[in-house]
Design a binder for these strands. Structure first.
Lengths: 214, 214
DNA sequence: ACCTGAACACCGTTCAAGT
DNA sequence: ACCTGAACACCGTTCAAGT
């Protein structure tokens, strides 16, 4: 307390503390004052290292992006590699549920992120896609990952499956059937994601093999 | 000005004004004071009709949900009906880009929303799905729609396609190829969505016809 | 029944001081 | 070079008045 702080503060250190705060206490708990407090400093000090709160959100976004493991993209067979990459991507988002809304609206332009996407597209082209088809596939996979991580779907329905039974028989049947397959709360999300992944990658493989419906 | 207001205020009227404000001036412009101003009233008055700002966000969410046209779900052939429904769902979200982050994190439990999902699941079951498979398909479609509406993907890449050319050749090639197919700014999103939709519904149809890979 | 003004505790951000 | 206290304009929300 008596000693002055050494150089504890930096854009990266602030981003790490911000992500911890979001993980621990939720997105709305990320306050400049609360963040400074967690860093043993006084609010206004943060502005010596970052330009604005928005800047911090960008830094947190980059932090999450850096957590994604893209080594599976170099694996063979390429289909399994891409599936593993997509699952890992989704797992990172799911492990920071309070930060998901942040990721969803914030484009990442880091050199790392670009290299990652470059690798994905190169893998798809090597597998036989035209560059344009590779872009479409990558986009579809991205949509599936982000959409499933946001999980509005299961959040909306996993909860009270029996409540609206008589008025909505198909809904109740489906949810009960899905629940019978696996009763864990994220199971329907997981299975929806896996289904979509299988359809996209399976359909792509069929198309590349010339058996697609074109 | 001299006359007292008649009953202009209500939860619904407030929600409509809130959505207008979000559409016009962005999500962060939705302020209790600004919203009241748009309704010719003074901030605190809103609390006579709604419980909190969060309550307003729920109401806006319901408003968007009500815009979705689910009549295509009753059309034949069911495959085209579901595709049309998914496209309409996505179109509604895209027509309120400033409100998308709101929809993404907010589960809608309205009677209308439940009926909508019930219809979708009933359609899938009628087409031959087991209830569990119907739930997975509906989830995958939902993820694709929401993920593509959030459009992080294209927001991140459509912009500066030439800038990082040498370091990321596959990325640059894909974006340029996609751009050549259709240069409009949302084209890659649209094509990614359509590709995912085709893969999911095509794969489902094949699976139901017994030609799937199981 | 419902609009109002004033106030509350909070927020992001700035800036003149300090060291 | 960087932390600080105080201040700024703002925010969501409450509440005693008013009509």
């Amino acid at each position: 307390m008596g000693r002055p702080h050494q150089t504890l503060l930096s854009r990266t250190a602030i981003a790490h503390a911000a992500l911890e705060l979001i993980d621990d206490r939720g997105y709305e708990a990320l306050t400049m004052r609360a963040l400074a407090d967690r860093l043993g400093v006084r609010g206004a000090s943060l502005y010596n290292h970052i330009g604005s709160k928005d800047d911090i959100l960008d830094a947190v976004s980059e932090l999450l992006d850096a957590e994604i493991d893209h080594t599976p993209l170099h694996r063979e067979p390429w289909l399994d590699g891409i599936a593993a990459y997509a699952r890992g991507y989704r797992r990172v988002l799911q492990s920071h549920p309070n930060a998901i809304s942040l990721v969803a609206r914030r484009a990442v332009h880091t050199e790392d992120a670009l290299r990652e996407y470059d690798t994905l597209l190169a893998t798809l082209v090597r597998a036989g896609c035209t560059p344009a088809l590779a872009a479409e596939t990558a986009a579809a996979l991205d949509f599936l990952v982000i959409g499933s991580a946001l999980e509005t779907y299961a959040a909306g329905f996993t909860r009270p499956p029996a409540a609206y039974r008589p008025e909505h028989p198909a809904l109740a049947d489906s949810l009960e059937a899905a629940n019978r397959v696996d009763p864990s709360p994220t199971a329907l999300d997981d299975r929806g994601f896996e289904f979509g992944l299988r359809m996209i990658l399976g359909g792509l493989a069929a198309q590349l093999a010339g058996t697609g419906s074109g």
